[in-house]
Design a binder for these strands. Structure first.
Lengths: 189, 189
DNA sequence: CCGACATTGTACCGATCGGTACAATGAGTC
DNA sequence: GACTCATTGTACCGATCGGTACAATGTCGG
């Protein structure tokens, strides 16, 4: 009987955090081992493909979370603005209001991109496309919807960088608030 | 007589490119040596502090370029909008219309931030502050100017990430065009 | 208890990491 | 030519890198 490690989700979450903090090159197997409490024996048992497979699994795991909590609401919400609101809530929650950085965005920047270009492009591409469609459904003409969507996703990525650089979480909150307004949502209480 | 290597600028530019492509951890001395044509003997002669000093010098070099080509125009242009226009031109030129990534932004994301937090914070902080002041001079109330400035710098960073992720330079051009409009500049010919 | 298989710890591999030591060379001044 | 000092190539250091091998465990169903 195929048995999935009962907490593979948790495991991938921990590994993700190591990649997030140190980047692909900087995340050594030693660091991953310390963070997860697993030795190399276990790590290579779960990820025979080694570090690259770990990273690939982590990206897929994050991708799945966004699919469920961001893309699906954008696509399926009867009221498109409600879906967009859920996207912003989920985004704020996922990035812990700016404490966390976007692993996939970080991978996009350096040469590790070469290994994961497909996954990276798909993640951001779907984010932009689903948001653009929701914006169209909420009344924006297609071209404008695309621009707004691209701008919103880029604004989130940039705000993560800037918040981290300035060591000021408010940078991220302000960026999300501006996007709320720009995308047609009422100011938050 | 103190003699500065005649092309220290060029040297720092090459080293910067290696850090940009591979990140701080990923930029090995071997890669740096190959890119510059210098052996370890030479590298440690010019940078006795090793890799960390190289990175610090590279950041300072970039910072200086932005000081001269971005911050000074923002601060000193008689017509603030002209200064903002120069900022956008210089930015487009520096990042090669999205082909290049922001090394300082990349360093802000992973743990190498711990080493360079001061330089990183200063670079982005000055960018935002100088832009905000130019916006005030061009007629925006202070609070609005700060928000616009922060948004513009974040939009540029985010667009670099997104352009790289999507492997589509137009993402960056579109972001710059939107910022032109948002900051009060006429649409470009 | 037994066999099957999932999981683990440990020892080890060659390669590469950042860094050091130092002698040899280059280029300029006197 | 002799002295100075900047520059370089090479050999080497211990540590760590990602990865492999494998025997020793744990954990099941039967």
């Amino acid at each position: 009987m195929r048995r999935i490690a009962p907490d593979r989700d948790q495991l991938l979450g921990i590994v993700a955090e190591v990649f997030r903090e140190h980047g692909y090159e900087g995340a050594s197997l030693t660091l991953i081992g310390e963070a997860t409490g697993l030795g190399k024996g276990s790590l290579y048992h779960f990820f025979p493909g080694g570090k690259e497979e770990m990273a690939r699994a982590v990206i897929a795991h994050i991708d799945g979370w966004f699919e469920d909590n961001v893309f699906v609401p954008l696509r399926d919400a009867v009221e498109p603005l409600a879906g967009i609101g859920q996207m912003l809530e989920a985004t704020d929650s996922y990035f812990r209001s700016g404490r966390r950085v976007c692993l996939i965005g970080a991978f996009a920047l350096d040469e590790s991109r070469a290994l994961f270009a497909g996954q990276i492009g798909s993640y951001f591409g779907r984010w932009v496309v689903h948001l653009a469609r929701a914006l169209e459904r909420s009344g924006h003409p297609p071209g404008e919807a695309s621009e707004l969507a691209e701008e919103a996703v880029a604004a989130i990525q940039g705000a993560l960088t800037l918040a981290r650089a300035a060591n000021d979480l408010d940078v991220f909150s302000r960026a999300l608030r501006r996007q709320r307004m720009r995308l047609g949502l009422p100011a938050k209480i």
